[in-house]
Design a protein around this nucleic acid. Structure first.
Lengths: 153, 153
DNA sequence: CTGCTAAGTTGGAAAAACCTACTCAGGAGG
DNA sequence: CCTCCTGAGTAGGTTTTTCCAACTTAGCAG
């Protein structure tokens, strides 16, 4: 079981090695909604325990979640899973997927979750922004190869 | 082989039913880089032809790609696959994954692809923006349940 | 009417996911 | 101090996906 993982030159491919497996992004969705425990993830998603176990340890391995002991009074110590800063930054990915689903796979009832600013309460979208924090239109976005781009063999 | 597909109340889950399978986002990456033909995707990714065929037809089914006939002089008509507007909007998802990989799974050589404005040539990031096109900090983002949120059974 | 080529299909092996049942560790209750 | 309870997994067998290689198909050129 070799894990070439972060060996891929493409950042998208590397990210997908960490979060691209089935269930992983849904586990993270639940983590963003505040769930931290094995059984909580299991009940929310209906995922098989062996798959959940494997996904959680991958996420911990790559620093998306941290595994932390906790102890409720009168019980033994157990472990819970918490988003790290790196994990929280995946919120953009989930937000982008959510937005795309809202826009292109709508349901008659409308979205079940909306993204809003905590301060201004304005609805939020996910998009490309320049260094001054100004949104840029999709048509204005280009992907450029850098010097690190592998030469075609 | 039931396809509950767009039945899920969560937009993230619905999006993942379309683009969440293994290979799909990498196929789209290649589509964004200009590839349109079966053999081009196959060679770029090293994907098995049956899996590629299945993924392409799912993407066409959900309006991410359009299947269009083309004919080169002296050959029969064949089909190629082109991003639709819905497909182009997935660029945000790929951009977010790429950014996360650049930030959290870096390689010593640095990123191979960078996102820049076509007009200003400024580097671009992916983030949450308010209706005025102003970027909003991650800490200011909240997810709220709407009236359409299913009641917990 | 044979060969060439892009775009797939098909069939069988390997890997991943699924499902159910079981384990494991400690504290509580008796 | 022995049994029960509970959260967090592990184990075994089945089903579904993926992988790989070979084969098919359709039209044009020669």
């Amino acid at each position: 079981m070799v894990r070439p993982s972060t060996e891929q030159p493409c950042s998208i491919a590397r990210s997908l090695e960490v979060v691209g497996a089935r269930w992983t992004l849904l586990i993270l969705r639940e983590a963003f909604s505040g769930k931290t425990r094995f059984a909580e993830f299991r009940e929310a998603l209906g995922i098989a325990p062996d798959v959940l176990s494997e996904r959680l340890s991958t996420l911990v391995e790559y620093g998306v979640l941290s595994k932390e002991p906790y102890q409720e009074p009168g019980t033994r110590a157990r472990y819970s899973y918490h988003l790290t800063e790196a994990g929280r930054e995946l919120w953009v990915v989930l937000g982008a997927l959510q937005q795309w689903g809202d826009d292109h796979l709508p349901r008659p009832e409308g979205p079940t979750i909306e993204r809003r600013s905590r301060n201004t309460h304005l609805p939020l979208r996910v998009g490309f922004v320049d260094p001054k924090g100004k949104e840029v239109d999709l048509d204005d976005v280009q992907m450029l190869r850098t010097a690190a781009y592998p030469t075609t063999t």
